[in-house]
Design a protein around this nucleic acid. Structure first.
Length: 807
RNA sequence: GCCGGGGUGGUGAAACUGGCAAACACGAUGGAUUCAAAAUCCAUUGCCCGCAAGGGCUUGAGGGUUCAACUCCCUCCCCCGGCACCA
């Protein structure tokens, strides 16, 4: 047989598989369904580097395996194409985002097809197509209708470089997740999604998911549930003769604490400088100092406040509160170590039990009272509840999701603002049912009716973000000025767009929707016909059975998507409330220098080059073999030759008459390893098998081997399969079975130990009894000398494994 | 600081439920083949002692449980990832 030439066979089979549509998933089938999904990529201008396909190859192995196991496998791919780079590119070059995006997608797709990935391309989706984002908008309106979207002016994270607001999840250590610029605060009107309404459900739901513990833990920490009590502290008339004494009366400070049992040790209180009560309670003589401190806090960046110098600072307000447990008068301070947006932005300070309070008390010479804790948390809560000043409570760190972006290249938010409707709502001048819950919650904001969707993104001359907090869309008057769908009056469109994450919250539904439409209309784009609500197809295919992607999405996409799905479930639009049953994360592939691959470092390895030199199968084998799937690993330019040698050996395997090699063991190993996602050891086992078969292999055994190799190296396997005289694709074959009994019946090595040290090995038939084993062992030459002049005190026998003599 | 995951040859790593530590591969060394090279094939390749037969040691460190520990328990060190003044 001539040498194995990947260039000759790979293109051929890729074309053939496409023509015969063998990887397309029919919507109706008697087979059980299996939905295996990759996190779809953002098609950047740089194309794929060798790191991206690692996950795609892993899911491809699973997809092939499950198809051969008899499942109807849905394995689609698409493009998460809204986002800043395309827009920034447009600003620089004037090339419209839609154009550059299309070009990038073409390149990504070519690269994926070059690797022979078995996607059902008839279901390819693109989040930036109007037919797609119609549904993103539709789902947004469902959330809006349910009162899960509200508009609010609030200080939010602001990236000065991207010139847009960001969600908390997008700020990593005080820096913009995307560009790395230090973020600040900006007061702008925002659409915010009430993800906090789902805090408990998002937390509980984790329990039933087969996800890496690490990711679940990250979500748990992000949600950050604490149980404790809300306690009210009454403001006391201060001893000074303040002018604003009256307004200070009857004011309460509400705090949340996880340790109500320590209340006797509460010797002062601290409000966040931003707390609204500060203005009301501040004593005139403290006014200037308090104002000054508030200004300082405002000017502090997130980094300074949270990560920087943790030296405590603060200012006395001049006011006092009454500790409801012991009626003691305690001073009220403001300090920036109390955060405005957790709990109530106020704490009871217990310096004897809290490090931060202790540091503050030390610095400002405040009382530190040791207390005997005579009550449990529960008892203390009950006791305070009886006194009427507390209530057990739960708090979450999770904040609502800031959802609007002051940028162009995103889904338009399908709402208009109508001044007339606002007035009617505020006057209460409307019929029941005339406005939905979202419209009543946000007076003047009116939802577009479904028939007006999609609200398409207009083309612009200039994409430059304004930096003022206004979206570039605001300049396009012909687009923003419109008519209110409720009253027919003049209205203005919302000009902010949705964040990058919106389109990916539901995209796994889109593959199913598009599949259904393809069949009927031969359309390659989503349209309005499909009804998500109670769709039988969505019921059939969802949830996703196996999901693979990067761990960096732990508290972004993976959290947001769960939120949307839970909200759609509650709206009775879908019948499942978790999108991804099983999740596995991929370890990053680093450059040979151990650094992250990046254009600026100049250390990127391009898969095109690798495929050109070694072929797609070698590339696939190497990526699966190089190390555990979920661990980061550096690309080793030399390592790939091992994968190539392996496939060369497979190619050279000679069919020689008898089937004397037993394949049960290798089939079992590869089957179990695929199921466990241990692709590296599956490949290792196949290498071992091929080494042992180098002197020849029977035809039947070769056929079995090719079938287990096929998911990893589809082209070579298919080529050799057809060379053996088969007409149908190897992927239409069944996954080989193995016989557990035959594996057990083989001869095996029995270890002989003396005092726990290995002193000999004997080959014995399986199932040997203890007596037989002892006889064989004591007769063995290598063992005899160790037993000479020794008494065997104890014999430990582990069947088919070892025998240990204690002497 | 808290949470999660790790630490095994020159390198990437493997080891089921406690049962031969280092499978598989890269690299290296020697040999065969070749005019030569590539490719291929064979051998060696954890460390130490020994001419050898053979023996001893070895999974971050120290201790423990056990006939037997990479695996379980305790103490400590280091690395990676996440969160971080969350009351």
């Amino acid at each position: 047989m001539p040498d194995y030439n990947p260039q000759e066979i790979e293109k051929k089979w890729q074309r053939k598989w496409e023509e015969e549509k063998i990887f397309e998933a029919p919507d109706s089938s008697k087979k059980p369904k299996f939905f295996v999904l990759d996190m779809f990529p953002y098609p950047s201008g740089d194309g794929l580097h060798v790191g991206h396909p690692r996950g795609y190859i892993g899911t491809d192995v699973i997809a092939h395996y499950m198809r051969m196991k008899g499942y109807n496998v849905l394995h689609p791919m698409g493009w998460d194409a809204f986002g800043l780079p395309a827009e920034n590119y447009a600003i620089k070059t004037g090339i419209r985002p839609a154009i550059s995006t299309e070009k990038n997608i073409k390149r990504f797709k070519e690269q994926m097809q070059m690797l022979g990935l078995s996607y059902d391309w008839s279901r390819e989706i693109n989040t930036t197509e109007p037919g797609y984002y119609k549904w993103t908008q539709w789902i947004f309106l469902k959330l809006f209708e349910r009162g899960l979207a509200y508009r609010r002016k609030m200080p939010i994270n602001w990236c000065p470089s991207c010139k847009t607001g960001l969600a908390n999840e997008e700020v990593v250590a005080g820096k913009c997740e995307r560009c790395g610029a230090e973020t600040g605060k900006k007061d702008i009107e925002q659409w915010v999604l009430k993800i906090t309404d789902y805090a408990e459900k998002l937390l509980k739901g984790l329990g039933g998911l087969d996800w890496p513990e690490k990711i679940k833990e990250m979500q748990r920490n992000w949600i950050g549930k604490s149980e404790g009590a809300d306690i009210m502290f009454q403001i006391q008339n201060p001893k000074s003769k303040a002018q604003n004494q009256k307004t200070r009366d009857n004011n309460f400070i509400k705090v949340f604490t996880t340790r109500p049992d320590t209340i006797f040790g509460a010797t002062f209180m601290v409000l966040a400088p931003e707390h609204e009560l500060v203005e009301k309670i501040v004593a005139p003589e403290q006014f200037d100092e308090v104002r000054k401190y508030q200004e300082e806090t405002k000017n502090k960046s997130d980094i300074d406040r949270q990560l920087g110098n943790k030296e405590k600072t603060g200012v006395f307000t001049g006011a006092y509160a009454i500790n409801p447990a012991n009626q003691k008068e305690i001073p009220v301070y403001i300090a920036d170590y109390v955060l405005p947006n957790y709990g109530y932005g106020a704490i009871m300070a217990v310096p004897a039990h809290d490090e931060r309070d202790f540091a503050f008390a030390k610095k400002y010479n405040l009382a530190i009272e040791e207390v005997e804790l005579d009550k449990t948390v529960e008892q203390a809560t009950k006791w305070l509840e009886k006194k009427g000043c507390a209530k057990s409570a739960v708090n979450y760190k999770l904040r609502d999701w800031i959802f609007s972006r002051q940028r162009y290249w995103g889904e338009p938010i399908p709402l208009v603002f109508c001044e007339k409707c606002r007035k009617e709502i505020e006057k209460g001048n409307y019929k029941k049912g005339e406005f939905n819950k979202g419209e009543l919650l946000n007076p003047g904001w009116i939802a577009l009716p479904e028939k007006d969707l999609p609200l398409t993104l207009p083309e612009l001359e200039k994409y430059e973000p304004t930096g003022t907090g206004e979206s570039p869309l605001a300049q396009e008057k012909r687009w923003t000025e419109t008519i209110c769908p409720k009253c027919g009056g003049r209205a203005l469109r919302e000009t902010n767009t949705m964040p990058q994450w919106a389109g990916s919250c539901w995209y796994f539904l889109a593959y199913v929707m598009l599949g259904a439409q393809n069949k009927k209309a031969k359309s390659k784009k989503l349209n309005s016909k499909f009804k998500i609500q109670n769709s039988k197809l969505i019921k059939h295919w969802l949830p996703v059975d196996f999901y693979v992607g990067g761990a960096e999405h732990a508290v972004l996409h993976l959290l947001y998507s769960r939120f949307w799905i839970k909200a759609l479930y509650d709206a009775k639009i879908i019948d499942f409330d978790e999108p991804f049953k099983k999740l596995r994360t991929i370890g990053l592939i680093l450059a040979p220098d151990g650094q992250k691959m990046s254009k600026s470092r100049g250390n990127v390895i391009n898969p095109d080059d690798i495929v050109k030199e070694y072929g797609a199968d070698t590339f696939r084998i190497y990526e699966m073999f190089m190390g555990p799937f979920d661990q980061p690993i550096a690309w080793d330019p030399k390592g790939i030759s091992g994968a190539k040698r392996f496939l060369d050996k497979v190619w050279r395997m000679e069919v020689s008459g008898t089937d004397n090699l037993l394949t049960d063991k290798i089939v079992k190993k590869v089957t179990e390893d695929i199921e466990a996602g241990k692709f590296n050891t599956a490949v290792a086992a196949m290498m071992e098998f091929v080494n042992s078969a180098s002197k020849g292999i029977g035809k039947k055994n070769l056929e079995i081997f090719l079938r287990i190799l096929a998911p990893f190296a589809p082209h070579v396997s298919e080529e050799l399969w057809q060379k053996l005289g088969h007409r149908k694709s190897i992927f239409c074959e069944k996954w080989p079975a193995y016989n557990q009994k035959l594996i057990k019946e083989q001869d095996l090595s029995l270890i002989i130990q003396i005092n726990g040290k290995v002193r000999g090995i004997i080959v014995v038939p399986a199932g040997l009894s203890e007596n037989e084993a002892v006889n064989l062992a004591t007769e063995s030459e290598s063992v005899k000398k160790w037993l000479k002049n020794k008494n065997i005190q104890k014999t430990i026998f582990v069947k088919d494994r070892l025998i240990n003599f204690v002497v």
